[in-house]
Design a protein around this nucleic acid. Structure first.
Lengths: 203, 203
DNA sequence: GTGATTATTAACCAATTGGTTAAAAAAAAT
DNA sequence: ATTTTTTTTAACCAATTGGTTAATAATCAC
């Protein structure tokens, strides 16, 4: 149900985010969004034209969250081990705030990969990767860490952070955790994950 | 298009697996499945009754794949580091064979968690976890590895193995890889992943 | 061969769904 | 106050979709 004092437009956005992240593009229903927002279905079209356009709006917001501040931390001029700690902290923090965002984004990119092409050009992923690779190479040369590519290290970090949230309902069932147990488990990771990664590459 | 010499029933299953894994339950269309199998839509219902039943059949097959042989390896009586290597090898092998299986399973468990309840009782996940924890505790006591829970270690292993496949289309776009580059990257992981994990916990 | 059973299809149906329209209500402008 | 603009709704529509039916074709049992 709606909070009646907020504008219809904002209410629709909230309802749409909920519907799309929970059920995906094809699973979500315009009628459900209208009901959740407490307004008529025609009003959804009045404000946002089509389902596709409304979806794209929500998707772009969520996609932006996925990489928010990440490039800045990766390219920051701080020691590697400290940087790994900061990336993990940033990831877990963001994921705690938006737990079902990554599965949503991953899903919709899988269904329509070209959707993110425009956004990617603004991200300069390759530059970020190159800068990170240089820092890593420098540490390898110093003999402080083992040989590894920036690509693999970043994939490892993101895998370790993101996957438990993507697979949350399955992990909960398989490991027979309730919501509280899951939160405890995540808190445990928050502390241990950075050290796990640093130990993995440290000589 | 179909291979005309195979039975209709098997053709439908193949087509359904393709449709459901690519588009999910709500995104897949019975008509598309019939077309892909090269038969009439009514025949799909003739053999498999309803979309829901056909979906459940496919889902259970894919879900079984996800954990195939895993419990056996985890509980096997072999040294821990060797075991980690075997788990990683088994995972990557399976994932190379069925690359879009994990996202499919994760998705449908997210949408309907109770779907797997029955299957889980046959899996004895808790027993597997306990047995693995004992082996880990023994190594910790020997001073060969750092303190870690079986839960966290298993989640770490599965995260590192599965996530790149779940996020494959996004990783390809973000890191600007084509299919060949992605395969090269995965082959690189196959070699490095076990050592990464072992180094992370070894003292 | 022929009768029964099984497999397959075209046509159809009811429900759902994204989207439209025309009118009413509310708000803003004059 | 009244005209104009914006917001909101009920009713409707065309397309899609899962599913059914009744008839036909193929296969099997005898």
């Amino acid at each position: 149900m709606k909070k009646k004092d907020q504008s219809a437009e904002e209410g629709i956005l909230q309802a749409a985010r909920k519907a799309f992240t929970q059920k995906g593009l094809s699973g979500a229903r315009m009628q459900d969004i209208a009901d959740e927002a407490g307004i008529n279905k025609a009003l959804v079209h009045y404000y946002f034209d089509s389902k596709e356009k409304l979806f794209t709006l929500i998707f772009e917001q969520e996609f932006a969250k996925l990489f928010a501040n990440l490039a800045a931390v990766i390219t920051a001029d701080i020691p590697l081990f400290e940087k790994i700690g900061q990336i993990v902290a940033l990831d877990i923090e963001r994921l705690n705030e938006f737990p079902d965002m990554p599965l949503f984004v991953i899903n919709e990119v899988s269904r329509n990969p070209s959707r993110i092409v425009k956004r990617l050009k603004q991200m300069h992923a390759i530059n970020v990767l190159e800068s990170f690779q240089m820092q890593i190479n420098s540490e390898i040369k110093k003999g402080t860490i083992k040989k590894i590519s920036a690509e693999q290290l970043l994939i490892n970090i993101q895998s370790l952070c993101i996957f438990p949230f993507v697979a949350k309902p399955m992990l909960k069932k398989v490991l027979q955790m309730n919501e509280k147990n899951f939160q405890v488990m995540i808190q445990g990771r928050k502390k241990e994950l950075a050290m796990f990664i640093i130990n993995a590459i440290r000589i």
